[in-house]
């Protein structure tokens, strides 16, 4: 019988032994089929537990958690802009206010047809929404029907912009076909003068957070990106 106790055997299975003890266990395993069988049982147990719970770790994070974190990030950025990553856009305080408070809203569709359509199999912004995404700067949009929230570079390159109007809000990224809509949620509803941050805003913030690389553009970067055609 080998001198390997259960604690040492499972420590071997868990890869916790130093070199000397690891060799000792491996020599014992080679000499003792019963011990080797026991080690195999422990190894299978570990694999079974790991496999059983692995799918939870591979699922996309449910919206309830994204919303919770996005709302927290937004609140923190408003309360103490100096301490958060949102500093980049909080310095243009009006931008944050437009996204969270929904001030000065108008209609998206109105003579220009539908705001969203499908082109080459891709959902893209059309009409006035496309124009807003092309031309409107977040720093200069008093009274605009659709407001730009943030402009930011996405992971893997390219520009994206969040937008918000009465009928719809969301995020679009510049692709070959135009502004591909990444997310579309209900807008702010009929015009109001003051509105609390809604779950819709939180969803948009979560999408921005998931897509963006680095801080959102400041006014100068946004203007330069527009000059370059958002390429």
């Amino acid at each position: 019988m080998s001198m390997i106790d259960e604690a040492m055997l499972i420590a071997w299975v868990d890869g916790e032994l130093d070199e000397v003890n690891r060799r000792r266990v491996e020599r014992a395993l080679a000499d003792d089929p019963a011990l080797a069988e026991r080690a195999e049982t422990h190894r299978r147990l570990r694999a079974r537990l790991t496999d059983h719970f692995a799918p939870v770790g591979e699922e996309p994070v449910p919206d309830r958690f994204r919303t919770l974190l996005a709302e927290s990030a937004a609140v923190v950025s408003m309360e103490r802009p100096g301490r958060s990553r949102w500093r980049g856009w909080a310095t243009g305080g009006a931008i944050a206010a437009s996204l969270l408070l929904g001030l000065g809203l108008g209609r998206v569709s109105g003579g220009d047809g539908e705001p969203v359509g499908v082109r080459d199999g891709v959902m893209v912004a059309k009409g006035q929404l496309a124009s807003v995404l092309d031309d409107q700067l977040a720093a200069a949009q008093d009274g605009a029907a659709v407001r730009i929230g943030l402009s930011f570079r996405r992971k893997g390159g390219g520009w994206c912009r969040s937008f918000e109007g009465e009928a719809l809000a969301g995020v679009a990224c510049r692709e070959e076909q135009g502004w591909q809509v990444q997310q579309l949620v209900p807008g702010t509803g009929p015009e109001t003068t003051y509105r609390q941050a809604s779950s819709g805003d939180a969803r948009v913030l979560a999408t921005v957070d998931a897509l963006r690389e680095g801080p959102p553009a400041d006014a100068a970067q946004e203007a330069a990106a527009r000059e370059a055609g958002w390429r």
């Binding site: 770790g57 591979e58 699922e59 994070v61 958690f65 994204r66 974190l69 990030a73 949102w86 998931a210």
Partner: peptide, 21 residues
């Protein structure tokens, strides 16, 4: 990176741990 994005990044593991308990 903010506190919230750091939490989002480890959330899959946190959910897995919570599920196993």
């Amino acid at each position: 990176m903010s506190f919230e994005s750091d939490l989002l990044a480890i959330l899959p593991r946190l959910r897995r741990f919570a599920a196993s308990l």
